[in-house]
């Protein structure tokens, strides 16, 4: 029997953990200074919408009953408690710091979409002006980089998304996407209970965007702030 690992938590929840995505009883396993919420499972569940929702439901349940939750990625299975301890030990300090960062906080996600194709700008970006041949490689790189940023038609929109909820932001992850219409995904860590005010701030701060649209989702457990790898 293997262990499906849902999340790391800072403290053992005082309430009943309930069941996991397959109906298995959840329990907390201690490993060094870390606690992991696990369930017995023979094999990872197939990736279906139901499984994804159940995984998320379980993480949300943990979030509701404890202050700091660091989700593991869907499908995380180890051979048992000893295997889990072996994997957690080298990353203990990093994971503890991550748990401290997410304590009492939740994630909001903003997607920035292109409203309509910008053929002119796209063409300009793919074929930037020629760079002077007498510049060195470093200077050429910096000049090309500056021109690319100057010609990015969505830079102002992204700046608005980042600035509008500034007072709520405790941590930030920004992902740029090369495939339109999605321009960027912005994940913000905010204090719990501030989601509605955060969303209102984003919508107010981006209402005048012409070429881009935004969607706001959340609150989510802090998925985007649970980076790290257990080898």
């Amino acid at each position: 029997m293997s262990l499906y690992v849902y999340a790391l938590v800072a403290k053992g929840p005082s309430e009943e953990l309930g069941t996991g995505m397959s109906g298995e009883a959840l329990r907390v396993v201690a490993s060094g200074r870390l606690l992991a919420v696990v369930g017995d499972m023979y094999a990872p569940p197939p990736v279906t919408p139901t499984a994804l929702y159940e995984h998320d439901r379980t993480i949300r349940r943990m979030t509701a009953i404890t202050d700091a939750v660091l989700p593991l990625r869907f499908g995380s299975i180890v051979d048992g408690e000893l295997d889990l301890a072996r994997r957690l030990e080298p990353a203990e300090a990093t994971l503890e710091a991550a748990l401290t960062r997410v304590a009492g906080r939740e994630q909001m996600t903003v997607r920035l979409y292109e409203r309509q194709p910008r053929v002119e700008e796209d063409t300009r970006m793919s074929a930037p002006p020629a760079v002077a041949a007498d510049l060195g490689p470093g200077a050429r790189y910096l000049l090309e980089r500056r021109r690319t940023l100057e010609h990015d038609p969505h830079r102002a929109a992204l700046d608005a998304v980042l600035a509008a909820p500034a007072s709520f932001i405790r941590a930030q992850r920004v992902e740029s996407h090369g495939s339109r219409p999605l321009i960027a995904s912005v994940h913000h860590l905010i204090e719990r209970g501030q989601g509605a005010a955060y969303a209102a701030a984003v919508h107010a701060g981006t209402a005048n965007l012409i070429d881009a649209a935004v969607t706001v989702s959340g609150p989510w457990p802090p998925y985007a702030f649970a980076s790290g790898e257990l080898t």
Binding site: P46, P49, L70, R73, F74, G75, E229
Partner: peptide, 28 residues
Amino acid sequence: EADASLLDLVDNVLTKGVVIDGEIILGL
């Protein structure tokens, strides 16, 4: 029907979170 947005769910659950090396099974 995916009110929470399947995109957001897939992004968060499948591409975020602490990773256990070599143990992730992705059907996508």
